[in-house]
Design a protein around this nucleic acid. Structure first.
Lengths: 338, 338
DNA sequence: TTGAAAGCGTTACCAT
DNA sequence: ATGGTAACGCTTTCAA
């Protein structure tokens, strides 16, 4: 059943049905009711493909995230969920594209075949060919995270540098002098992942300012790697009394390593970092951390994208978030101090 | 740029370009090369909407999951990721629909506007109006989970009953006599969630068989609820020595509650349940559990759906999985026994 | 082996 | 306030 059928049964033209539906042209109250009745009766809904073809808008936004095999983090989940729900509130659908690079087939389909009106990109790299490509095409998009030179692109991001600095200062204030940094996997660092780089910058800078002795580690995105990583930390410098981590997925393993090594948190070892709030709360003791406001970020990204779609010539906007550290139970004064 | 432009530049007709692309009709090697060169030169890709309108296929599958606010579980993440990746392998895109009920706008859009060729549904209820509606329309779909009467529908599911029974027997074999069951939130049980119901059935049955003294609890999908729930368990029956849980998100809280109550796992309290493997491994001690093979299930669901799309009259198929219990470190003989 | 043209189901412009 | 009709960009039947 199509718009023609509705028109026939309502005794009007197809254009009138179209206008009755879109409201883009006044329709008499009378015919509008007639049309509505037929529509309700038949449960008619306009075909999305035909509509997209005719008016050039798909009412769909693409969500581009890296294909992670089975190594998704909780944060990614939160982004995906919040983007989908925020988009639904605007009556946009979300098309998933597991693409880490400009060349991925799914990414190419998204753009080339005009499947979406705009896109939201996750897991941004400092130099990101996907972002460059999109900018070049002037394709409406918003990134969750920002590249090295984010001028002209729309984004919502986290100030990882400041966040990690705050973590380091928090530890230094508690008297810690030997602190380890647990970063995302080396492969992601090398690929130029924003959070890994900026986090590392913040750590390096703050540690230097406070004159700390440090160790820097890359750690796989899973519990087993976390445990191994912690063993290396204590092996490299048994006098380490604290760590800051960006690696949410490794957190459980980090804790386990600590327990195995007989270090009690927070009595003789402090742990902090930047992690989505609900994951910070699953570990015991609960993690003192800068909570990644994943839900808010997803929502903001959608808001921004919708704004950009509605107003193609608006100047680039962005949101840089720097949530405060939530004091929970995983940090304390260094043993022997205070 | 469109197919007409390509045709013009290649000096052929539009249909020839179309056939050169689809291969549905022989095209001379010569013209095919001419066409391909123009296509490469201009980076042409056929418009998805136009193509969908003309041939009735969108090359998109819908993934329907309940809008959870911010209470997604890790398992849901794993499903979404694995479905997206499996679909990409077939060159299908995945459209997200946060819909818990037949009446959700997003769900209605999906079907009514013909945005997708088929759908995969998550978080199935025993009586599920979404599934009924889809079956009624004979709309190609596969459910992850099965309804009370899954005859005629395509699904991939977990044998929650058997899984939970296995957990109970495992505990009973270890000598536990007083065992608690930590289910999903009451609201989900009342809504008829499959896992909550079948899991409960399995628990009840096995506990009766082994003559266990039991407590049954519904628990919110977060760490705080898990902790509260555990307090209630020990308050209701301090002699409880073990629990089995379906509630992945509460796991961290359950462990914390145990620690707070001074119960050491597994020395004086055993914990088991059914949980995605990687979450079972983040807690310490690692959880002995029936690992939900989320990745495999997502992949199987896509395989099934693609098969159904390719062959509309194939009889309904399904996969019922019952992974074995992975022995890790959270269960042991009841205190005083050996 | 190729071309012409009729759809596919909308929208939106041009009339009236 | 409404109707007719030409797009939108592709696929596919019919002809040659």
């Amino acid at each position: 059943m199509n718009i023609g059928e509705i028109a026939r049964r309502a005794g009007v033209s197809r254009s009138t049905v179209s206008y009755a539906l879109s409201g883009k042209r006044p329709v008499s109250e009378d015919t509008r009711r007639k049309i509505q009745r037929v529509i309700d009766e038949l449960g008619y809904r306009p075909n999305a493909s035909a509509r997209a073809l005719a008016n050039g808008r798909t009412s769909t936004i693409g969500l581009v995230f890296p294909p992670a095999g089975n190594h998704y983090t909780g944060m990614q989940l939160d982004f995906i969920g919040s983007v989908a729900e925020a988009a639904a509130a605007y009556d946009y659908d979300v098309l998933l594209s597991p693409s880490g690079a400009d060349s991925d087939r799914s990414f190419q389909r998204l753009l080339g075949e005009r499947r979406v009106d705009g896109a939201i990109l996750m897991e941004i790299r400092l130099e990101d060919d996907r972002v460059d490509h999109l900018a070049e095409l002037d394709f409406p998009s918003v990134t969750i995270g920002r590249t090295a030179r984010p001028g002209g692109v729309w984004w919502v991001g986290l100030d990882h540098t400041a966040l990690v600095e705050a973590c380091v200062h928090h530890l230094a204030d508690l008297g810690h002098r030997r602190v380890a940094f647990v970063n995302r996997p080396e492969q992601l660092l090398r690929a130029g992942y924003e959070s890994a780089h900026r986090g590392l910058d913040g750590f390096t800078k703050a540690a230097a300012e406070r004159g700390l002795t440090v160790g820097m580690y890359n750690c796989g995105d899973d519990a087993a790697s976390g445990q191994t990583c912690l063993e290396r930390i204590l092996h490299d410098d048994p006098a380490t009394t604290a760590l800051v981590t960006l690696n949410e997925a490794a957190l459980g393993g980090l804790y386990r390593g600590l327990a195995k090594a007989g270090r009690h948190v927070p009595r003789d070892f402090s742990v902090t970092g930047v992690v989505a709030g609900r994951w910070a709360e699953t570990v015991t003791p609960q993690l003192t951390a800068a909570d990644v406001p994943a839900e808010e970020m997803g929502r903001l990204a959608v808001d921004l994208l919708v704004e950009r779609l509605d107003n193609p010539h608006a100047p680039a906007r962005h949101h840089l978030l720097a949530p405060p550290i939530s004091l929970r139970a995983s940090t304390g004064p260094v043993f022997g101090t205070s």
